[in-house]
């Protein structure tokens, strides 16, 4: 028994030192002035238009990339599990998803700048060979949709990785039972498959949302400070340039914890409603 507890020690120490203590530090710091006196000023400072709009654009990008990631990832996972694609596609796709879902930060930003930037390879090929000027059509990589597109590169594979086992869990007999009882394909999906998958779908959506909401390295490497999403505003407050106000930074981080907490609360509530039928 004592040995079993010993096994828990290393990671618990990690979690305490690098997750729980910093989080507590942030939460406490959000309600303190630089000299340590309690205050609500940092949190109240969040309610200024520039910061509120940063939160709003962060939430929108996170929701958009999570929704699109869920839809596209689901379609791909369904294609390899239920769609009857050749079996050999599954292994490589899942392996690639495992790699791509962790592909973020400077390399990802560079990859997209090199392909879809103003002078990116794809941009130039489209322009020179096909006469399509995507920037002339309004596309901009350093924009809401640009960043959403870049995030999709890790959101879609993450969805594939998480939802594939859930789709594998759909029993063939459920479909056959529904079919022989007279149900059409869409009826089966609406009445049986989607309700069964809903807890997994909600869970994955919540994860993708948090994944995008907290992503800073990719956004910063890609847009610098040209797109004001919360992680970038936060970064500006703590990295030590003219804007530096670490305690506003703490408040910004605290705000992110609150948003993620609300998103998770909604997820937990929805999940409880959608899985009354499980143990």
């Amino acid at each position: 028994m004592p040995l079993a507890w010993l096994g828990m020690v290393p990671f618990t120490l990690f979690a305490v030192l690098f997750l729980i203590l910093p989080t507590m530090n942030i939460v406490v710091g959000a309600f303190q002035t630089p000299d340590g006196t309690p205050t609500f000023r940092n949190v109240l400072n969040l309610f200024q238009p520039s910061i509120l709009s940063a939160y709003w654009i962060s939430i929108r990008i996170s929701v958009a990339s999570a929704l699109a990631g869920c839809l596209i990832g689901f379609a791909m996972a369904a294609a390899i599990t239920l769609g009857g694609l050749p079996q050999w596609i599954r292994g490589p796709l899942l392996t690639f998803s495992g790699v791509a879902s962790n592909f973020a930060g400077v390399p990802l930003a560079f990859a997209f700048l090199a392909t879809l930037g103003r002078l990116g390879l794809v941009t130039v090929i489209l322009k020179d060979w096909f006469g399509i000027n995507i920037y002339g059509l309004g596309f901009n990589l350093l924009s809401f949709w640009g960043l959403t597109l870049v995030y999709l590169f890790f959101q879609i594979p993450l969805m594939i990785l998480i939802i594939t086992p859930a789709l594998d869990g759909l029993k063939k007999e459920w479909r056959e039972a529904a079919e022989i009882l007279g149900a059409s394909g869409p009826q089966y999906w609406r009445m049986v498959a989607l309700p069964i998958l809903l807890p997994s779908l909600l869970g994955t959506f919540a994860l993708l949302f948090a994944n995008a909401f907290g992503a800073v390295a990719t956004a910063y490497a890609l847009t610098g400070s040209s797109l004001s999403i919360v992680p970038i505003v936060l970064f500006a407050q703590i990295r030590g340039d003219v804007l530096q106000d670490p305690h506003l930074g703490y408040a910004l981080a605290f705000g992110m914890i609150v948003v993620t907490g609300i998103a998770n609360g909604i997820y937990v509530w929805l999940r409880a409603r959608t899985e009354r039928w499980t143990r």
């Binding site: 007999e173 056959e176 039972a177 529904a178 022989i180 007279g182 039928w277 499980t278």
Partner: peptide, 27 residues
């Protein structure tokens, strides 16, 4: 045709009554 499967194949998200009513509902 009615069919009963080895693994029961009841829809886990539906109650007993909803399972029994499934075929009638889709009709």
């Amino acid at each position: 045709i009615g069919m009963v499967f080895q693994s029961y194949a009841l829809f886990p998200n539906l109650t007993v009554a909803q399972n029994v009513a499934f075929g009638l509902k889709v009709k």
